[in-house]
Computed example of a mutant assay.
Amino acid sequence: EKTGLKEFLRTTKQSFDLSVKTQYKKNKDKHSIPIPLDVFYVFMNHNINSFIRQFEKGRHQALVSFTNAYNEAKLKFDKYKVEKSLNNQPRIFQIPGYTIPLFNIEASPSTVKMLPFGYVIPEEISTPSFTIWGSDFYVPPYTLVLPSLELPALPVPTSPLEFSLPELKILSTPRNILIPALGNITYDFSFKSSVMTLNTHVELYNQSDIVVHFLSSSSSLMDALQYKLEGTSSLTRKRGLKLATALSLSNEFVGGSHNSTISLTKKTMEASVTTIAKVQISTLNMN
Protein backbone atom coordinates (compact mmCIF):
# COMPACT_ATOMS: atom_id res chain seq x y z
CA GLU A 1 0.00 0.00 0.00
CA LYS A 2 2.89 2.39 0.72
CA THR A 3 4.11 2.06 -2.88
CA GLY A 4 0.74 3.05 -4.29
CA LEU A 5 -0.28 -0.39 -5.60
CA LYS A 6 -3.40 -0.58 -3.45
CA GLU A 7 -5.37 1.13 -6.23
CA PHE A 8 -4.52 -1.72 -8.63
CA LEU A 9 -4.36 -4.79 -6.39
CA ARG A 10 -7.68 -6.18 -5.24
CA THR A 11 -6.14 -8.46 -2.62
CA THR A 12 -2.76 -8.78 -0.96
CA LYS A 13 -2.16 -12.11 -2.74
CA GLN A 14 -2.06 -12.09 -6.51
CA SER A 15 -1.61 -14.81 -9.13
CA PHE A 16 -1.23 -14.63 -12.89
CA ASP A 17 -1.03 -16.90 -15.93
CA LEU A 18 1.64 -16.37 -18.60
CA SER A 19 1.69 -18.17 -21.94
CA VAL A 20 4.07 -17.75 -24.89
CA LYS A 21 3.80 -19.77 -28.11
CA THR A 22 5.89 -19.52 -31.28
CA GLN A 23 5.37 -21.59 -34.42
CA TYR A 24 7.39 -21.69 -37.63
CA LYS A 25 6.20 -23.40 -40.80
CA LYS A 26 8.88 -24.20 -43.37
CA ASN A 27 8.57 -22.78 -46.86
CA LYS A 28 9.16 -25.16 -49.78
CA ASP A 29 10.38 -22.37 -52.06
CA LYS A 30 14.09 -21.60 -52.42
CA HIS A 31 16.04 -18.62 -53.68
CA SER A 32 18.71 -19.41 -56.25
CA ILE A 33 21.82 -17.22 -56.21
CA PRO A 34 24.10 -17.76 -59.23
CA ILE A 35 27.86 -17.98 -58.76
CA PRO A 36 29.76 -16.37 -61.67
CA LEU A 37 32.29 -19.18 -62.07
CA ASP A 38 32.36 -18.76 -65.87
CA VAL A 39 33.71 -15.23 -65.51
CA PHE A 40 36.34 -16.46 -63.06
CA TYR A 41 37.51 -19.24 -65.39
CA VAL A 42 37.74 -16.89 -68.38
CA PHE A 43 39.68 -14.33 -66.35
CA MET A 44 42.16 -16.92 -65.06
CA ASN A 45 42.76 -18.49 -68.47
CA HIS A 46 43.32 -15.08 -70.08
CA ASN A 47 45.79 -13.97 -67.42
CA ILE A 48 47.63 -17.24 -66.74
CA ASN A 49 50.20 -16.64 -69.52
CA SER A 50 50.95 -13.16 -68.18
CA PHE A 51 51.42 -14.65 -64.71
CA ILE A 52 53.87 -17.25 -66.06
CA ARG A 53 55.93 -14.56 -67.81
CA GLN A 54 56.09 -12.44 -64.65
CA PHE A 55 57.05 -15.50 -62.59
CA GLU A 56 59.88 -16.49 -64.97
CA LYS A 57 61.16 -12.90 -65.03
CA GLY A 58 61.23 -12.69 -61.25
CA ARG A 59 62.87 -16.11 -60.98
CA HIS A 60 65.62 -15.10 -63.43
CA GLN A 61 66.30 -11.84 -61.55
CA ALA A 62 66.48 -13.68 -58.22
CA LEU A 63 68.88 -16.30 -59.64
CA VAL A 64 71.17 -13.63 -61.13
CA SER A 65 71.24 -11.63 -57.89
CA PHE A 66 72.02 -14.72 -55.80
CA THR A 67 74.74 -15.90 -58.21
CA ASN A 68 76.45 -12.50 -58.29
CA ALA A 69 76.37 -12.21 -54.49
CA TYR A 70 77.80 -15.72 -54.05
CA ASN A 71 80.59 -15.20 -56.59
CA GLU A 72 81.54 -11.88 -55.00
CA ALA A 73 81.71 -13.49 -51.56
CA LYS A 74 83.83 -16.35 -52.98
CA LEU A 75 86.31 -13.93 -54.57
CA LYS A 76 86.69 -11.96 -51.35
CA PHE A 77 87.21 -15.14 -49.33
CA ASP A 78 89.82 -16.53 -51.75
CA LYS A 79 91.64 -13.19 -51.76
CA TYR A 80 91.62 -13.12 -47.98
CA LYS A 81 93.11 -16.64 -47.80
CA VAL A 82 95.90 -15.79 -50.26
CA GLU A 83 96.87 -12.57 -48.47
CA LYS A 84 96.94 -14.23 -45.06
CA SER A 85 98.91 -17.21 -46.40
CA LEU A 86 101.61 -14.93 -47.84
CA ASN A 87 101.93 -12.68 -44.81
CA ASN A 88 101.44 -15.22 -42.01
CA GLN A 89 103.06 -18.56 -41.35
CA PRO A 90 101.08 -21.47 -40.00
CA ARG A 91 101.16 -21.67 -36.22
CA ILE A 92 101.83 -24.99 -34.56
CA PHE A 93 100.62 -25.60 -31.02
CA GLN A 94 102.67 -28.11 -29.03
CA ILE A 95 100.85 -30.23 -26.47
CA PRO A 96 103.39 -31.74 -24.05
CA GLY A 97 103.27 -35.36 -23.01
CA TYR A 98 101.52 -36.32 -19.79
CA THR A 99 100.91 -39.29 -17.54
CA ILE A 100 97.56 -40.49 -16.28
CA PRO A 101 98.02 -41.59 -12.67
CA LEU A 102 96.48 -44.74 -11.22
CA PHE A 103 96.22 -46.27 -14.71
CA ASN A 104 99.94 -45.94 -15.52
CA ILE A 105 99.18 -44.56 -18.99
CA GLU A 106 101.80 -42.36 -20.63
CA ALA A 107 100.90 -40.08 -23.56
CA SER A 108 103.52 -38.68 -25.91
CA PRO A 109 103.59 -35.02 -27.05
CA SER A 110 101.19 -34.00 -29.85
CA THR A 111 100.81 -31.03 -32.20
CA VAL A 112 97.98 -29.00 -33.76
CA LYS A 113 98.76 -27.05 -36.93
CA MET A 114 96.46 -24.08 -37.56
CA LEU A 115 95.59 -22.41 -40.85
CA PRO A 116 97.65 -19.30 -41.62
CA PHE A 117 94.55 -17.09 -42.10
CA GLY A 118 92.82 -18.08 -38.89
CA TYR A 119 93.48 -19.58 -35.48
CA VAL A 120 90.09 -21.22 -35.03
CA ILE A 121 90.07 -23.94 -37.68
CA PRO A 122 92.95 -26.49 -37.54
CA GLU A 123 94.70 -27.74 -40.67
CA GLU A 124 96.50 -30.79 -39.26
CA ILE A 125 96.22 -32.64 -35.94
CA SER A 126 98.78 -35.15 -34.66
CA THR A 127 97.40 -37.41 -31.92
CA PRO A 128 99.67 -38.64 -29.12
CA SER A 129 100.76 -42.25 -28.63
CA PHE A 130 99.63 -44.10 -25.50
CA THR A 131 101.71 -46.63 -23.55
CA ILE A 132 100.78 -48.59 -20.42
CA TRP A 133 103.73 -49.25 -18.17
CA GLY A 134 104.51 -52.90 -17.50
CA SER A 135 102.51 -54.20 -20.47
CA ASP A 136 102.78 -54.53 -24.21
CA PHE A 137 99.75 -52.26 -24.83
CA TYR A 138 100.64 -49.45 -27.22
CA VAL A 139 98.59 -47.01 -29.37
CA PRO A 140 100.64 -45.41 -32.11
CA PRO A 141 100.22 -41.70 -33.03
CA TYR A 142 98.09 -40.63 -35.97
CA THR A 143 98.13 -37.56 -38.18
CA LEU A 144 94.77 -36.15 -39.29
CA VAL A 145 94.80 -33.71 -42.19
CA LEU A 146 91.56 -31.75 -42.42
CA PRO A 147 90.30 -30.54 -45.80
CA SER A 148 90.97 -26.91 -46.54
CA LEU A 149 88.14 -24.47 -46.08
CA GLU A 150 86.92 -23.10 -49.41
CA LEU A 151 83.72 -22.12 -51.14
CA PRO A 152 82.90 -24.38 -54.09
CA ALA A 153 81.92 -23.00 -57.44
CA LEU A 154 78.19 -22.49 -57.72
CA PRO A 155 76.73 -24.46 -60.62
CA VAL A 156 74.24 -22.33 -62.54
CA PRO A 157 71.90 -24.14 -64.94
CA THR A 158 72.26 -22.89 -68.50
CA SER A 159 68.65 -23.70 -69.38
CA PRO A 160 66.16 -22.73 -66.68
CA LEU A 161 63.41 -25.13 -65.72
CA GLU A 162 60.13 -24.60 -67.53
CA PHE A 163 57.17 -23.53 -65.45
CA SER A 164 53.61 -24.00 -66.61
CA LEU A 165 50.16 -24.02 -65.08
CA PRO A 166 47.29 -26.22 -66.24
CA GLU A 167 44.37 -24.67 -68.02
CA LEU A 168 41.32 -24.27 -65.81
CA LYS A 169 38.23 -26.08 -67.05
CA ILE A 170 34.65 -25.36 -66.09
CA LEU A 171 33.36 -27.95 -63.66
CA SER A 172 30.07 -29.71 -64.20
CA THR A 173 28.98 -29.16 -60.60
CA PRO A 174 26.01 -26.82 -59.91
CA ARG A 175 27.00 -23.17 -59.92
CA ASN A 176 24.05 -21.88 -57.88
CA ILE A 177 23.53 -21.46 -54.16
CA LEU A 178 20.03 -22.41 -52.99
CA ILE A 179 18.79 -20.55 -49.90
CA PRO A 180 15.46 -21.60 -48.36
CA ALA A 181 12.81 -18.90 -48.47
CA LEU A 182 11.42 -17.47 -45.26
CA GLY A 183 8.50 -19.49 -43.94
CA ASN A 184 5.41 -18.55 -41.96
CA ILE A 185 5.86 -17.42 -38.35
CA THR A 186 3.15 -17.18 -35.70
CA TYR A 187 3.65 -15.71 -32.22
CA ASP A 188 1.10 -15.65 -29.39
CA PHE A 189 1.49 -14.01 -26.00
CA SER A 190 -1.07 -14.14 -23.18
CA PHE A 191 -1.03 -12.62 -19.70
CA LYS A 192 -3.93 -13.03 -17.27
CA SER A 193 -4.26 -11.64 -13.76
CA SER A 194 -6.99 -10.36 -11.47
CA VAL A 195 -6.25 -6.81 -12.61
CA MET A 196 -6.07 -7.16 -16.40
CA THR A 197 -5.81 -9.60 -19.29
CA LEU A 198 -3.36 -8.96 -22.14
CA ASN A 199 -3.30 -10.85 -25.45
CA THR A 200 -0.89 -10.34 -28.33
CA HIS A 201 -0.89 -12.14 -31.66
CA VAL A 202 1.68 -11.65 -34.44
CA GLU A 203 1.79 -13.55 -37.71
CA LEU A 204 4.03 -13.33 -40.77
CA TYR A 205 3.10 -15.04 -44.03
CA ASN A 206 5.53 -15.35 -46.92
CA GLN A 207 3.68 -16.54 -49.98
CA SER A 208 3.38 -14.62 -53.22
CA ASP A 209 3.25 -11.51 -51.00
CA ILE A 210 4.78 -10.89 -47.57
CA VAL A 211 2.09 -10.03 -45.03
CA VAL A 212 2.61 -9.11 -41.36
CA HIS A 213 -0.37 -8.82 -39.03
CA PHE A 214 -0.23 -7.56 -35.44
CA LEU A 215 -3.03 -7.54 -32.87
CA SER A 216 -2.74 -6.63 -29.20
CA SER A 217 -5.66 -6.06 -26.82
CA SER A 218 -6.34 -5.89 -23.10
CA SER A 219 -9.33 -6.06 -20.81
CA SER A 220 -9.40 -4.77 -17.26
CA LEU A 221 -11.66 -3.58 -14.51
CA MET A 222 -10.16 -0.15 -15.11
CA ASP A 223 -11.15 1.52 -18.36
CA ALA A 224 -7.76 3.25 -18.64
CA LEU A 225 -6.03 -0.13 -19.02
CA GLN A 226 -8.26 -1.33 -21.86
CA TYR A 227 -6.97 -0.86 -25.38
CA LYS A 228 -6.79 -2.46 -28.81
CA LEU A 229 -3.84 -2.05 -31.16
CA GLU A 230 -3.99 -3.63 -34.60
CA GLY A 231 -1.68 -3.32 -37.58
CA THR A 232 -1.19 -4.90 -40.98
CA SER A 233 1.68 -4.48 -43.43
CA SER A 234 2.01 -6.15 -46.83
CA LEU A 235 4.73 -6.14 -49.45
CA THR A 236 3.71 -6.93 -53.02
CA ARG A 237 6.40 -7.82 -55.53
CA LYS A 238 4.34 -7.98 -58.71
CA ARG A 239 5.10 -5.29 -61.31
CA GLY A 240 7.46 -3.52 -58.92
CA LEU A 241 7.28 -3.08 -55.17
CA LYS A 242 4.28 -1.93 -53.19
CA LEU A 243 4.31 -1.51 -49.41
CA ALA A 244 0.99 -0.92 -47.66
CA THR A 245 0.70 -0.30 -43.92
CA ALA A 246 -2.37 0.16 -41.72
CA LEU A 247 -2.41 0.82 -37.96
CA SER A 248 -5.26 1.52 -35.55
CA LEU A 249 -5.38 2.24 -31.81
CA SER A 250 -8.44 2.55 -29.61
CA ASN A 251 -8.43 3.54 -25.93
CA GLU A 252 -10.57 5.58 -23.57
CA PHE A 253 -8.15 8.50 -23.76
CA VAL A 254 -6.12 7.97 -26.95
CA GLY A 255 -7.13 6.71 -30.37
CA GLY A 256 -6.17 7.00 -33.99
CA SER A 257 -5.31 5.33 -37.26
CA HIS A 258 -2.55 5.41 -39.84
CA ASN A 259 -2.59 4.31 -43.47
CA SER A 260 0.31 4.59 -45.91
CA THR A 261 1.14 3.20 -49.34
CA ILE A 262 4.44 3.34 -51.22
CA SER A 263 4.71 2.05 -54.80
CA LEU A 264 7.97 1.69 -56.71
CA THR A 265 8.30 0.78 -60.36
CA LYS A 266 11.07 1.19 -62.91
CA LYS A 267 9.64 4.52 -64.05
CA THR A 268 7.50 5.95 -61.25
CA MET A 269 7.26 6.28 -57.49
CA GLU A 270 4.00 6.99 -55.64
CA ALA A 271 3.35 7.50 -51.94
CA SER A 272 0.32 8.38 -49.84
CA VAL A 273 0.00 8.82 -46.07
CA THR A 274 -3.12 9.38 -43.94
CA THR A 275 -2.95 9.74 -40.15
CA ILE A 276 -5.80 10.45 -37.72
CA ALA A 277 -5.24 10.96 -33.98
CA LYS A 278 -7.64 11.65 -31.11
CA VAL A 279 -6.82 12.62 -27.50
CA GLN A 280 -9.54 12.97 -24.83
CA ILE A 281 -8.57 13.76 -21.26
CA SER A 282 -10.10 15.95 -18.59
CA THR A 283 -7.95 18.96 -19.50
CA LEU A 284 -7.46 18.37 -23.25
CA ASN A 285 -9.67 17.31 -26.12
CA MET A 286 -7.94 17.21 -29.50
CA ASN A 287 -8.66 15.57 -32.88
Rank of each mutant, 00 (worst) to 15 (best):
D136Y: 07
Q23T: 07
I276S: 11
P90N: 08
S194N: 05
V211N: 15
K81M: 09
L168D: 01
E124R: 12
N287Y: 11
S217P: 11
S250D: 08
P157G: 02
T67S: 07
V82P: 00
E1Q: 11
I125W: 00
I35Q: 09
S65A: 13
L249P: 02
I281T: 05
F130D: 13
M269E: 04
P174E: 00
F253W: 02
Y98R: 10
E124K: 07
L161R: 11
F253E: 06
N88S: 12
T12W: 12
A277P: 00
V20L: 09
P180Q: 00
P122F: 01
P122C: 04
S233P: 03
G134C: 00
S257P: 04
V211T: 13
L182M: 06
S50Q: 09
D209F: 15
N45Y: 15
N285Y: 07
K25W: 00
K84H: 12
L247D: 13
I170M: 08
F77I: 06
E72M: 08
I262F: 13
I35Y: 15
G240K: 06
I33S: 09
R175C: 01
L151E: 01
Q94L: 15
F191K: 03
L215K: 11
Y24C: 03
V254W: 11
D78N: 10
L221R: 15
E230D: 10
L241R: 13
K74I: 05
V139I: 14
Q54W: 08
L182Y: 07
E123S: 10
N87W: 11
E203V: 07
L198Q: 08
T67H: 12
F66T: 05
S172T: 14
P116D: 09
F214T: 03
Q54Y: 13
P155Q: 09
S110P: 03
E252N: 07
I121C: 02
S190T: 10
L151W: 01
E106L: 05
Y80M: 07
K6R: 13
V112F: 06
L264F: 10
F8Q: 08
S129N: 12
Y70G: 08
E150M: 09
N285L: 07
L37N: 01
A271E: 02
T186C: 06
E1C: 08
F93Q: 05
Q89V: 04
